[in-house]
Computed example of a mutant assay.
Amino acid sequence: MPEISSRVRESHVPRQRGGAALVSYVLPVFNEQDGIRHFHDELVAALGERPEFTYELVYVNDGSADGTLAILEDIAKNDRRARIVDFARNFGHQMAITAGIDEARGDAVIVMDTDLQDPPKVSLELIDAWRDGAEIVHARRRTRQDTLFKRATAHAYYRLLRSSTDVDIPLDTGDFRLMDRRAADELRRFRERSRFVRGMVASMGFRQSEVHFDRDERFAGETKYPLRKMARLAIDGLTGFSTAPLQMITKLGFAVLALSLLGICYALAMKVLRPEITVSGWTMLMVVVLFLGGVQMLSLGVLGSYIGRTYSEVQGRPLYTVRQVIAHDHDVAAGDDGIAGNGNGNGNGNGNGTGDDD
Results as ranks from 00 to 15, higher is better:
M1S: 15
S5L: 02
V8M: 13
R9G: 03
E10V: 13
R15A: 10
Y25T: 00
N31T: 05
H38E: 14
D41V: 10
L43H: 02
L43W: 02
L43K: 00
R50F: 11
E52F: 06
E56G: 03
E56P: 03
V60I: 15
I71S: 07
E73Y: 05
E73C: 11
I75C: 08
A76G: 09
A76T: 07
R80T: 10
I84E: 03
I84R: 02
V85D: 01
V85E: 01
R89C: 08
F91I: 13
F91G: 03
G92Y: 01
G92K: 03
I97W: 00
R105W: 06
A108H: 04
V111H: 01
D113T: 07
T114S: 07
D115M: 06
D115I: 03
D118M: 11
P119A: 09
P119M: 07
P119N: 07
S123C: 15
I127D: 01
I127H: 02
D128I: 06
H138F: 15
T143R: 13
R144V: 10
F149A: 15
T153D: 07
A154R: 08
A156L: 15
R159M: 04
T165L: 03
V167K: 03
D168H: 07
L171R: 02
D172H: 09
T173S: 10
R177C: 13
L187T: 00
R191F: 07
R191Y: 08
R193H: 13
S194L: 12
R195C: 02
F196N: 00
M204G: 03
F206A: 04
F206P: 00
R207T: 14
V211L: 07
F213W: 05
D214H: 12
R218Y: 08
A220P: 08
G221R: 08
T223L: 10
R232A: 15
R232P: 04
L238K: 05
L238R: 05
T239C: 15
G240F: 06
S242E: 06
T243I: 12
A244P: 06
P245S: 09
L252Y: 07
A255F: 10
V256N: 11
A258D: 15
L262R: 10
G263C: 09
L268V: 14
M270C: 10
I277M: 10
G281N: 14
T283N: 09
T283D: 12
M284E: 13
M284C: 08
V289K: 06
F291A: 14
V295S: 06
M297H: 11
S299K: 01
L303C: 10
I307W: 13
G308H: 13
G308E: 13
R309I: 13
E313M: 08
P318G: 04
A327C: 14
D331R: 15
A333I: 11
A333Y: 08
A333R: 05
D336Y: 10
D337C: 07
G338I: 01
G345Y: 02
G349R: 02
N350D: 13
G351Y: 05
G353W: 01
G355L: 11
G355S: 14
D358S: 14
